[in-house]
Design a protein around this nucleic acid. Sequence first.
DNA 1: CTGTTTATATACCGTTCAGTATAGAACAGA
DNA 2: TCTGTTCTATACTGAACGGTATATAAACAG
Lengths: 203, 203
Amino acid sequence: MVSVLTKVCKGRPREFDVDEALAAALRVFWSKGYEGASLTDLTDAMGITRPSLYAAFGNKEALFKKALDLYEREKLAYIGEALSAPTSREVAERLLTGALEMQTSECEPRGCLRVISTISCGQEADSVRADLMARRGSSHRAMLDRMQRAKDEGDLPPHVEAEAMTNYLLAILQGMSVQASSGASREQLQEVVRTSVAVWPGK
Amino acid sequence: MVSVLTKVCKGRPREFDVDEALAAALRVFWSKGYEGASLTDLTDAMGITRPSLYAAFGNKEALFKKALDLYEREKLAYIGEALSAPTSREVAERLLTGALEMQTSECEPRGCLRVISTISCGQEADSVRADLMARRGSSHRAMLDRMQRAKDEGDLPPHVEAEAMTNYLLAILQGMSVQASSGASREQLQEVVRTSVAVWPGK
DNA sequence: CTGTTTATATACCGTTCAGTATAGAACAGA
DNA sequence: TCTGTTCTATACTGAACGGTATATAAACAG
């Protein structure tokens, strides 16, 4: 009997590791954007041929979405952790430092894949745009809920709205991504984080 | 005798208005980015043929730089005006509202052309990247000088650095551009502006 | 061993890309 | 009218794009 875990299949076994190939594809999309990444760029980085890519991942669009899944699972994990902080100021600080760490890593592309893709994705890749919008929407909602909770708890002053604080904080995070993409140093972004935390109106 | 101003040239006269064509090209680059704008997109919008474009503007890259010049002259004029405001808070408020007005105009593409181009411009268009970096550098320097003056005048508290405030404010402006590009409403951005001004630490 | 199934390698498909060669059309001066 | 100059229109170039047809190689079951 064959183990379910080893998952032995019938035909010729695959010669590459799907997860490794996907991680390589993620790095390509991350540094070049969806449309800027050509199939040649992708297959070169993944170390596989075009037919192998299509057999394993479907097409470029499906590969991108799987890469986005991996990105959110591995690189955006700090968001969920940050939102569980006790105060809104600490939430903001953890989100900002998390973004800082992630976007200025030495061994990874700069900036946020979502921001890069949203900006650089042309109108023709409509399905990709819609997918990015939906993913951003769920993050936005999570942050909004957390800010609303902060307001309910008296953590944020009454004259600021949860929605406004959410969009304000998101703007700083997205702006940091723009600066990271265009080569800002970790120290520069560190000062943005420090300033943002310093002026944060809540507890 | 022929007037110097009318500039009558020898051969067949040009059948299109160079300024109008450049304005049309600007709108294409603005909505699609440098690499996303194809020559077909450009010539269709400009109402001219490919050889006419090359004769009048050189090539795609030169056309883009001329479009950037026009953009900065006509659409970023608010920056210089904002920097002459008396207090740092007013500077910030005018920069933010200027960006808001410009980036959410009904009859123009959303977001900031510089941000869009910086993010979506691949490594291959190296000269374009360098040009964008230089342009951003000069804006950054102007803002930094203004923030330094604010510090010298006691307008900003002593514990915040001019450089940090500059990068912080720039991040918000760039984040607003990201949000505008991805379809945020004017009201949403208005709240980002209001929040940013509300938490501004200076006079 | 023979089939069957799946993965790989190569070479190709039609389309679009930025850029251009060529020929004709519209002007000025002679 | 003739010539020189400059713009326009059409059609084209080689390269790159995303995606695939075809043939072969490597595993399994019988």
